[in-house]
Design a binder for these strands. Structure first.
Length: 386
RNA sequence: CGGGGUGUAGGUCAUCGGUAGACCGCUCGGUUCGGGUCCGAGAGGCAGUGGGUUCAAUUCCCGCCACCCCGACCA
């Protein structure tokens, strides 16, 4: 990608009211653009980051045997009335006369499954999708961390037995740990309340960050946390940390299945309700959380796995064209006729992992510098392509 | 939803009871070319919106709207 053709360009100033690092840097870098409070366009750069996050999640979900699909966002009132959530979740759900906008998909999944589920032989079912969620947030805040509309992966699993359910629940927990590790985050598995979703406790995946809106108590011995909302221990025995919730997993037991009549014929010939759980990761929030963790005063420092481009090639003195053509697709080439300083500043702001410079000074070599280091080395094109 | 703050050029901000100015960005010309170079010229604004006070309102007062922050709330 040539920078000269990239839409849009970087900005020198952050939005005047922006406080959160992700808000300032993602907007300045041209990753996201605000339509209104809690509503963001993912610009070409931001979309590339989200696509990389999505692909990592997809790989790990598929590895658990889950199948990707896509469900609608406009839901009939009826299915939500079956579980009572048309009323109980009215505050978070955007509702029209006979429809509601998706803020989650439990009801739709259960309606889907009951039409196709007959026997224990059909179970387990593990299905997921990536889609927009609408939430009528009383207060959208923190840049892209809490929006009224955002992207999320939600996985749903249905099982013939409690034992099989918990086995898979644990498998998803491990998959989540892999996902967060792959995107560069250290997460704290945290016990929490289920809110509108369930009376049971749930597991959240929290990332320590001073800008986080959650408070959790971390047990120094196990490294696991308990959300402030259900914490009942002695404060002195725990470490209190602020954190961003980047994922969560829920067990519903047979509660919703019974309400919606989602049952199957078991081995013994009797009808039983399915065991049901759901598992979410917000891709857009995850992008914001990554920026909260990985940035300095100059800009973003993307982990390699989610960076929009691996290389940011700076051409000076009209050079760089040859190197650009050899590097393939994973490179952003700053081909503008502007000062070196401006190009370096933009490279720091955009935060690609490796900055390459080709100039009069580098001769037939290429200068390489990691975004997270000051060390510079000269290499030749052949070893770079290796 | 309660409290606070802010709305002036594309962006960030000054100004001020007498119909607006800087910097950045943009366009043009020159200059420069390893950390947002420098010089010159130019384009660009119904001062969020509705009302009130006044000879006169961007400025003072009130309503509304929007955004940001704190709280409440919250997959």
């Amino acid at each position: 990608m040539r920078y000269s053709q990239l839409f849009p360009k970087t900005k020198r100033d952050a939005p005047k009211d922006a406080v959160a690092a992700n808000h300032k840097l993602l907007v300045r870098g041209g990753y996201i653009d605000q339509l209104m409070a809690g509503s963001w366009t993912l610009l070409p750069l931001g979309w590339r980051v989200v696509a990389k996050i999505t692909q990592i999640i997809r790989e790990e979900m598929n590895a658990t045997g889950a199948q990707e699909m896509l469900m609608p966002l406009l839901h009939p009132k009826e299915v939500w009335e079956e579980t009572g959530r048309w009323e109980s979740a009215a505050e978070v759900m955007y509702q029209l006369d006979n429809f509601g906008l998706a803020f989650t998909h439990e009801e739709v999944v259960l309606d889907l499954v009951r039409k196709h589920l007959e026997s224990y032989l059909d179970l387990p079912i593990k299905i997921y999708h990536f889609s927009t969620k609408f939430r009528n947030e009383a207060r959208a805040t923190g840049g892209i961390l809490r929006g009224r509309e955002f992207l999320m992966k939600d996985l749903y699993s249905l099982h013939a037995s409690e034992e099989d359910f918990w086995k898979y629940y644990e498998e998803v927990k491990q998959a989540y740990l892999k996902i967060f590790k792959r995107v560069g985050l250290d997460v704290i598995v945290t016990e929490a309340a289920g809110g509108v979703f369930t009376g049971n406790h749930t597991h959240e995946f929290q990332v320590a960050a001073s800008s986080g809106e959650d408070v959790i108590y971390v047990d120094p011995k196990t490294g696991t946390g308990i959300n402030k909302e259900i914490f009942a221990g002695e404060e002195k025995d725990y470490k209190k940390v602020q954190a961003i919730e980047v994922g969560n997993i829920f067990s519903f037991g047979t509660y919703y299945s019974e309400k919606m009549g989602v049952d199957f014929t078991d081995k013994d010939g009797t009808k039983k309700p399915v065991w049901f759980g759901s598992y979410g990761i917000g891709q857009t929030r995850l992008m914001g959380a990554i920026v909260e963790i990985f940035h300095d005063d100059k800009g973003i420092i993307w982990p390699g796995s989610v960076a929009p481009f691996k290389y940011h090639l700076v051409g000076l003195n009209g050079k760089g064209e040859d190197v650009y053509k050899k590097l393939g697709d994973d490179v952003l080439f700053d081909d503008r006729d502007v000062s070196a300083g401006e190009k370096f500043a933009d490279a720091d702001l955009l935060g690609c992992p490796i900055r390459l410079v080709v100039s009069d000074k580098t001769g037939d070599k290429i200068e390489a510098k990691r975004r997270d280091s000051e060390a510079i080395k000269l290499i030749d094109i052949a070893s770079l392509l290796d």
